[in-house]
Design a protein around this nucleic acid. Structure first.
Lengths: 344, 344
DNA sequence: TTGAAAGCGCTAACAT
DNA sequence: ATGTTAGCGCTTTCAA
């Protein structure tokens, strides 16, 4: 077992208190004592017992994230990158990251309640906000620190970072309209997800601004996986009145759509334009490379984490609501033209 | 703040000790007292303070995993699925999952040391073992519980689960040889990774068994990303003596290789066969679908987690070393033949 | 059947 | 500049 303050105190012949203060560099300890204490501490390889510190402080130095997952086959590039951003930032600021996974719904909410009351974490990061988000409602009421990645409908009295999904999707409609597309299919996401909502808004409004009417029969929605993208695009492209372009609300579905088009013998970028949203690493290296909207997931992870820890520490935030403007990445899946590699 | 044992004790008019024992269902507490204590506890919404329990027990009820990551653009489907497996299993068994990310090397090892000594977790799960793995050496010496996913060279006196990568890659060479390929390129992984080692062995030995000699000039190695796969395959395919098939040591690089081939105007599955290893969800839904080797990552996550917790609890394991046989998934990227969808 | 007391390792208020 | 005392919330002897 690791040495304790008491061990050091005995060796040095001082009280535990003095040792504690010496190690924490209080200025009411004589330099000699400090030096001596430090020496012995090093010698014994002292490391503070974090459990004791936490009990004393009544804080866990840990932030939590509960990933909303459905099936076991859970593999969204978005999450691993986001997690890395949060995790690295948390480590930098001296916090641990507690990760759980729960299917959205009752079980999920119970997990929040438990973790709040235990208390197992000092604050939460919420991902994939929903139109009405119980998690946010609950944490707000409980006055428990959290930062969300994403907004909610009809309530923004909480701290969040979000991308401007509406703007992002308008970049797509502008781009497609410019290429001359008139009939554009849309691969929508689950109705209760806020990001799908904004992107859909952007799509509809973007078309309108271009003087194009949105044909609702070309709207189909799926569960954000490639599989869904494949199936939905296949249906769209098999219609007699098939669209000349398909915009997907995320990259994964767009990748599925590309496969579907190719399986039908279509040349993506030429015969049909396909676009995504997210710019996951795969987007650049698939064939053809995917035109999409970039949002800096890793940086958002860092940002959200930093804001949460500030909140936990009661430091003031410059900005409690942040909305980021994403940018368009034009690639071959829409233009058919080969683009030179973006970065070495 | 949550109610404490003391609060309950005051209300009931009993000592804290009695209340503690009542709630833990000791049999030396009268039924009436138990009932009364339980009633008041419910009324106050009592939840034990986990920090105090942990200090007392000197255990954290938490297992740790430190993900080896390089750049910020970290997005490996393998990890998110593996994490989900571990996380869900841990939750089921009453454990928390502490996730960190560190670049392999000194910083990483320091993180292990710190977490061991704090003590922040009760045990570790190690991923992506290396030929000589400092992490394993350190934890073994410290006699700290851990379970690894993967083996090590020259030392198997520790608990692990691994896939039989050599066998898996032989499935690939057999398959390619059967299709008539004689010159096969190999996209290798980093030299210090154990899984890359076994898969390479399987490739070399598999070829030998087929009476084919491995042309070392067709071996190129990269960092496991699609980007690397793209670049390496591009080089291979541009040679005058280009191979007729390319086996990649993981799916991500294989996907990159597919893009490279397609960019060169080759029909994958017809003009060149390409295979992967891992069977990530994308493999089935890319174009053409990728022939690969399947290993049940999610289940392995569960398994590893269960074994670790048993070890922590000093329960006996039926098997301390487990090696799983992966299976071949034949798809269009090698055969050129369309395969009916595997599952609905 | 119950309670008093000690202790997990640390920090902090107060006194000296 | 240092020590005494108390306390974080819980569990666990040991005694009654």
């Amino acid at each position: 077992m690791s040495a304790t303050l008491k061990d050091i105190a005995n060796r040095v012949g001082k009280s535990v208190t003095t040792v504690s203060r010496a190690l924490n560099d209080f200025d009411d300890v004589s330099p000699e004592t400090k030096a001596e204490v430090q020496r012995v501490a090093d010698e014994l390889g002292y490391i503070p017992n974090i459990l004791a510190q936490r009990l004393q402080k009544q804080s866990t130095d840990t932030i939590g994230i509960i990933l909303p997952t459905f099936g076991p086959r859970f593999s969204d590039p978005f999450f691993s990158e986001f997690l890395a951003g949060i995790g690295n930032q948390a480590a930098k600021l001296g916090y641990d990251l507690l990760v759980s996974t729960r299917p959205p719904g009752k079980i999920e909410l119970e997990a929040y309640q438990q973790q709040v009351r235990s208390p197992r974490v000092d604050g939460f990061i919420i991902v994939r906000t929903r139109l009405q988000d119980q998690r946010i409602t609950f944490l707000s009421r409980a006055d428990f620190p959290f930062v969300a990645f994403g907004r909610m409908l009809d309530d923004d009295r909480y701290i969040y970072v979000d991308e401007d999904g509406e703007y992002g999707m308008k970049l797509i409609t502008d781009h497609l309209a410019e290429l001359g597309h008139q009939r554009i299919g849309y691969l929508d996401g689950p109705a209760d997800l806020m990001f799908a909502y904004y992107r859909r808004e952007g799509f509809v409004n973007g078309l309108a601004e271009q003087g194009l009417s949105a044909d609702r029969t070309l709207f189909v929605s799926g569960d954000l996986t490639q599989k869904a993208g494949y199936k939905l695009a296949n249906e769209l492209l098999n219609r007699p009145d098939a669209p000349s372009a398909i915009a997907a609300c995320n990259d994964l579905m767009a990748l599925g759509a590309i496969s579907a088009a190719q399986d039908l013998g279509l040349e993506v970028g030429e015969d049909v334009a396909i676009t995504g949203f997210d710019n996951i690493p795969l987007a650049e290296h698939c064939h053809p490379p995917l035109t999409t909207v970039h949002q800096p997931i890793y940086q958002i992870g860092e940002m959200v984490c930093k804001m949460l820890i500030k909140q936990i520490r009661n430091e003031s935030l410059e900005q409690e609501q942040i909305i980021l403007r994403p940018s368009l990445m034009v690639r071959q899946s829409s233009t058919g033209k080969k683009v030179l590699s973006e970065n070495s």
